[in-house]
Amino acid sequence: MQGRSRSIHLSVHIHKDPAAMAERAAHIFAAACEEAVSERGTFTVALSGGHTPIPFFQLLAKSDWADRLPWDKMSFFWVDERCVDPEHPDSNYGLARRELLSHVPATHFYRMRGESDPVEAAVRYEQQIRTEFNLGPDEFPRFDFMLLGMGDDGHTGSIFPDSPALVEQKRLVIDQYVPERKADRLTLTLPVINNARLCLFLVTGSEKHEVLSRALNLLAEPTLPAQMVRPRGGDLIWIVDEAAATGN
């Protein structure tokens, strides 16, 4: 699988506000779900945290969206997690549970254990992914939908600039201490992210305009973590607000 040549399909959608962004993301999510369930019988999703995806989560939780989606055929994983208890306000799992998962009939959740020892939690999550995807020793999972965000330093997931995670090629999940945040994090690695069928970024705010311009330049040598997200044979979709797109 790793040796095959794959093209990248990039699209950028600019919307006025987070509500319009969420609507666009919901349509993309539903279309990806329909295709995955039709072809493979299940829809595998990896979620990110932060404030940006909240309108998207809340929209999916509303009845007009929730009632039309096959939640029993979805499996939810996480792109990254803060090393905190799931009840902690900073927990990515806790955010998704509060804003989305507790409001819909979804039952297949595979969370990162942020409250456990980070080294053990990373190993455990990698083993869980390998089991759920029925992977061989050198295989990577192929998620159907990967929800991502980007910080104003260009980080995505918990892969930060100058992080050892940037050069990791074998592991699926790593633990790392992030000096900028003075905290431990768990994160999927770039080979896992880049093996997804669809990577969708949600980005808001004028303060991210410059870094967004750099991240979208796929012709340049990648220097930012978000710029290194280049799914092989998959779709790369950016949904951004006007402030991020224009800097105003």
Rank of each mutant, 00 (worst) to 15 (best):
M1W: 03
R4W: 14
S5D: 05
R6F: 13
I8F: 02
H9M: 12
L10P: 07
S11E: 15
S11R: 15
V12S: 09
H13A: 08
H13Q: 14
H15L: 15
P18D: 13
A20C: 13
M21Q: 11
M21W: 11
M21D: 02
R24F: 09
A25H: 01
A31R: 14
C33P: 02
E34Y: 10
T42N: 09
V45E: 01
L47C: 10
L47G: 07
L47N: 10
G50R: 09
P53T: 05
F57E: 12
L60C: 04
K62A: 14
D64R: 11
W65A: 03
A66V: 05
D67H: 14
R68D: 08
R68K: 15
R68V: 10
D72T: 14
S75W: 12
F76T: 01
F77L: 06
F77H: 01
F77K: 00
D80M: 01
C83D: 08
V84T: 09
E87K: 12
H88P: 04
H88T: 04
D90V: 04
Y93W: 15
Y93T: 05
L100K: 01
H103I: 01
H103E: 02
V104E: 05
P105Q: 09
P105S: 12
P105N: 13
R113W: 03
R113H: 11
G114I: 06
G114T: 05
P118C: 03
P118E: 04
Y125F: 13
E126V: 10
Q127C: 12
I129S: 03
E132G: 08
L135V: 09
P137N: 08
P137D: 13
G151Q: 09
D152Y: 04
D153K: 10
D153Y: 11
D153E: 15
S158Y: 06
I159D: 03
F160D: 06
P161M: 08
D162L: 04
P164Y: 06
P164Q: 13
A165W: 04
A165S: 07
A165Q: 03
V167P: 01
V167E: 14
K170T: 05
E180R: 11
R181N: 14
K182P: 00
D184Q: 10
D184T: 01
D184C: 00
L190N: 04
N194Y: 09
N195Y: 02
R197Y: 11
S206T: 09
E207G: 14
E207S: 15
K208S: 06
K208R: 11
H209P: 09
A215Q: 06
A215L: 13
N217I: 10
A226L: 10
V229R: 03
P231I: 08
R232N: 13
G233M: 07
G234L: 07
D235P: 01
I239Q: 06
V240L: 10
V240A: 02
D241C: 12
A244L: 10
A244Q: 07
T246V: 12
G247Y: 07
